[in-house]
Nucleic acid binder design. Structure first.
Lengths: 190, 190
DNA sequence: GAAATAAATTGACCTAGGTCAAATAAGGAA
DNA sequence: TTCCTTATTTGACCTAGGTCAATTTATTTC
């Protein structure tokens, strides 16, 4: 996965100034206070959110329960991919876990830019590939690891998640009940 | 998902003849007999395989057991995405379930083409987005449906899988043991 | 077509993790 | 600080689906 970050960084570094300024032209900054929503279910995700400061999470509701699908930190891109890509109403919420400063980019303006600029299309492709890799990894872990292993794996990779997010949100992210995660944590700390 | 197919088809229809011929230039046909491998774990996935005829499946080994991750039919693109994208040794096998006729495209030649042609880069992006959408859907089903519901869902969407693939392969694809799937099938047919 | 091999079914039993409910603990508001 | 609300922990119990083993049924192969 780190190799992919590298690919993306290299590509970003190679962008010419004009392309960068065009990207900049279609973005604007905004602050979302803690507890507010960058996106609510039912609305179409018309923007992507590049995280400048703060933390957020994405979740959906199933049988009245929240399923956290992703956590966002500095430099992550928050978006409900399905809603954004198809421009259909979202099933997901994106919530500011703490105050967030984000750079917002409009879907249509970005799409237009992608049609004109190979550099941007390539950037988008790299980001997409990274996301697919991440999804594959998640699916594989879900299949092959038990709840404790998944938690430990998350613990090793993303210490910040464990420190900043609620047990209930981490639990649904890992695909276990919060009671079970509570027990896992107890066992591990003993 | 169908809406995405449409997007891809429209884009394909819009490709200019020169781009198409360049795509054609870097592709070649090949037959894989039933039981043979389009890709074996340990090797780098240096090609993508566009299915012209036959059926195939992708799987990995975990604790000596096969986990089927994808089935391929006519017009599908078979590739071990992680190995292909990063050009690292594959953890996955792609096996011809029956005799397969495929159109093979070389990774490096395709990458070169993507760097020159916005149309190709865009095509690749659309395919990538479709794959990510498919992975998201799979992950969501895994979280929210029990084994029977997942089987019925597969049954409704891909009758061909049920008809052509072995129970054991379908079971690992659904994330259940083959004994459990056998019982599910019995219950449903009763 | 018979023997050999692989796949699928069925039964008995077990466990990871879910659910429900009660008890603490920890943040916020006032 | 105290009250109120929201999270977390802990216990008791339950179930979906896993594992192991024995058959039965299909497929190959000769």
């Amino acid at each position: 996965m780190e190799r992919y970050f590298k690919k993306i960084e290299e590509h970003l570094a190679s962008l010419d100034p004009e392309t960068l300024s065009r990207l900049n032209d279609i973005s604007s900054e905004r602050i979302y206070p803690k507890g507010s929503f960058l996106l609510e279910a039912g609305n179409i995700c018309r923007h992507s959110f590049f995280m400048l400061e703060g933390t957020a999470r994405k979740y959906s509701l199933h049988d009245g329960k929240e399923i956290t699908t992703e956590f966002y930190f500095k430099d992550d891109i928050a978006v409900s991919f399905r809603s954004y890509g198809l421009q259909i109403p979202s099933e997901e919420y994106i919530e500011a876990v703490e105050d967030c400063k984000v750079s917002i980019t409009d879907y249509y303006q970005y799409e237009a830019l992608k049609k004109e600029s190979l550099q941007i299309a390539t950037l988008d492709l790299l980001i997409m590939e990274y996301y697919a890799l991440w999804l594959e990894e998640k699916l594989y872990q879900q299949r092959t690891m038990d709840a404790t292993e998944r938690y430990v794996s998350l613990l090793n990779k993303n210490t910040e998640i464990i420190q900043q997010m609620k047990v209930g949100h981490i639990a649904s992210y890992l695909g276990v009940s919060f009671e079970t995660l509570s027990r896992i944590r107890k066992r591990l700390s003993a």
